[in-house]
Design a protein around this nucleic acid. Structure first.
Length: 162
DNA sequence: GTATTGATCTTCT
DNA sequence: GAAGATCAATACA
């Protein structure tokens, strides 16, 4: 199963909102791995959230996967999520991981080999990307490090207007 | 349609 | 002992 990522958030090592801000711990160890590593953590004790390490190894920079447009394995994802609405299937970090079947077991796994496959969208126009404040954080909330496709109906939080 | 609240666990104070 | 990169159900306009 899979989809087109339509919403992301950036987290840097010198960013107070980032898990890597206070240094390496048992939980965020994967965040300091080589680029392309999957970093999975438990959120609010209930959900799993997936990140892709994107900085050099040992730095602690990653991108949070927030939402996607489902394209493959729809029935499988619907079964896992328990809902039919395509728009909400992957609308949010916790939803996305649940739909894709990502759990803490995948923490630290490389994304450049099976069972994962990560590809560039290729034709996505830069003009279609809109930035804004990140969601659900209290520190450094003013940084416009949330990136989403403007025209997509599949983004999570506030419905970006037009 | 928007606003509010419960569920539930890991980490840090 | 409190807070947190959340979701979904319930309450209200």
């Amino acid at each position: 199963m899979g989809g087109i990522l339509v919403e992301l958030e950036a987290y840097a090592p010198d960013d107070p909102a980032s898990h890597s801000f206070n240094g390496r711990t048992a939980r965020n160890a994967a965040m300091f791995g080589p680029p392309g590593t999957l970093y999975v953590y438990r959120s609010y004790g209930i959900h799993w959230c997936a990140n892709v390490v994107c900085g050099p190894e040992g730095v602690g920079a990653a991108v949070l996967l927030r939402a996607a447009k489902p394209t493959h394995g729809l029935d499988e994802m619907r079964a896992r999520r328990g809902i039919d609405d395509l728009r909400r299937l992957c609308a949010g970090p916790g939803c996305l991981t649940q739909a894709l079947g990502i759990t803490g077991d995948h923490d630290g796994e490389p994304l450049d080999r099976l069972p994962f496959e990560l590809r560039g969208a290729g034709s996505t126009p830069a003009a279609g990307v809109v930035t804004g404040p990140r969601v659900g954080i209290t520190r450094a909330a003013d940084l416009p490090w949330r990136y989403s496709l403007r025209s997509s109906l599949f983004v999570s939080r506030p419905r970006p207007r037009a």
